[in-house]
Amino acid sequence: MTSEKAYKTLLGIIGGVLIIGLLLSIFFTLFINSLPSIKSFGFKFFLEKTWDPVFGNFGALPFIIGTLLTSIISLIISIPFSLSVSLFVGEFYRDTFLSKILETLIGILAVIPSVIIGLWALFYLTPIIRNIQAKLSLPPTGVCIFTASLTLSIMILPYATSVGKEVIKLVPNDLKEAGFSFGATSYEVVKKIVFPYARSGILAGFLLSFGRAIGETMAVTMVIGNSNYIPKNIFSPGNTISSVIANEFLEAVENIHISSLIELALILFLITFIMNFVANIIIKRMRVKI
């Protein structure tokens, strides 16, 4: 018995130190290097809309807006698609050959490197957007918030879909059959039985997709237009928190510029940290229910 205790104790101490130590170091590195920026700008950092490396004024508002816009729009665009595929694969055509193909294809989407999707989007989506911009009498840049959102929606689709289809599959058959035996149509069974039962799982899937969208860098950087101003509308160019870091970090020379970019990275870290904790709690609650 003692060798077991010794083994577990050793494992526990080293493992705990490594994991907790790693995450603490990540946080502290980001925090300490953001201090110059935090000290200079304080809370105004989030509200200032000017990001001006030349004059040393750094306000993160354009990027916060850019990130929120692209993430929210991409989530909204992807919702009908991910719900449809989840229903197709998890309910209506469950376990059929067709649904396996669909699942495989969407699964492939999840592993394609972001930079490659960016490449494709840059050469094939932007011309389409350019047409739309021209028709709306807007400057035909092709690259803009909307292009980035559209690209993101394709990329985040697999995440909500995979969670969604799993929870939909878990809805107990007898509940559904009860609905059918009352003469309900599939639509009614889905609306009144399947969705309510699977609701928290589906929401967790959306949260997962949203979290992915917030942190996504490469494809967004390639098609968002790299502008440090608050976008006038969704067809204006812009920047997200991650894309401005990717675009400017190598060129930043002034300490305060670098520190501001690192503060942005810290913000990203904190956002994804919180989202992960919340998602974990939701999933744990669901396990208890099942």
């Binding site: 980001l30 942190g215 860098t217 870091i245 990203l268 994804t272 992960n276």
Partner: peptide, 14 residues
Amino acid sequence: DVLQGIPSIVIGII
């Protein structure tokens, strides 16, 4: 899970 969720650009900064 948090580590896994950190955006890769932030990892690059680290």
